[in-house]
Amino acid sequence: MTGIIEAAVNGILMGGLYGLIAVSLSLIFGVAKIVNFAHGALLMVALFTVYWILELLKVDPYLSALLAGCFLFFFGYYFQRLFIEPILKREKDTAALTVILLTSGLMLIIENSALLLFGADYRTVRTAYTGKVWEVAGLYIMQPRLIGFVLSVVLIRLLEFYLRRTNFGRAIRATSQDREAARLMGIDDYRVYKVTFGIGTVILGFAAAFLTPFYFIHPAVGDLFVGKSFVIVVLGGLGSITGAFLGGLIVGLIESVGAQFINSAMVESLIFIVFIACLVIRPMGLLGKERE
């Protein structure tokens, strides 16, 4: 029984990080309707950013998130500005498909550039939190995971506050719901897209900072998370922030608890079974809006 509880705790903690990564994807998709296949590559960029900040400045990994965030905002902003925006402007009707092709291509370019720049070495950072464990009632809870989870929850609350309560946040929500109407309200839609993309990559920066104390960094590391993120986003409801986070927790739980009962090679299939079942019952995802 303890083993199952331990697995559930771990599933929730890890699921929080899956959720955070998926929230970023969901935000970008929800607002700009961009299916970003380069998401994993951007996570990798975020991980390397955090890695280099930690290596060069030797700051606390959680502090590095703020520094990385500043850089990554502009990275995301200009990623959208330089690569995706021209396509949205030029191809009004077929842009969705072209953007998928474009982001897939960019993923390969970014990953291979990282391979050239940083080599294929696996890197890890030994921080003050690495390998630290809290023993609570016979359960081992890994410190960096718990901290990462708590901060993820805080970050998502902040993001929701930003979207709900601030001027630009409202503009983002308005644009995500009806781009044309938003433009007629005087909102510069392309600016909203750029800022949203920037916010999305900032979130990835935080996810990277939460992962780094117990994870490894490698040009292909994004591949481990990206497939899962797409499942989570659809499960949670396209464009829903809370839904994506909830989806992350569910996938984390299934993965961790499921593996205690069946072979972990089968757990992936289990995730997809739950995923399909969810879509049959609620085609719009857990917290998605009904289409009008």
Partner: peptide
């Protein structure tokens, strides 16, 4: 075409903020 998941006030605020910060 109101922004249906925003409140009535937020809907108007989105527009009002275009005129003042």
């Amino acid at each position: 075409k109101p922004f249906s998941s925003l409140t009535v006030l937020d809907n108007v605020l989105v527009a009002a903020y275009r005129r003042t910060a």
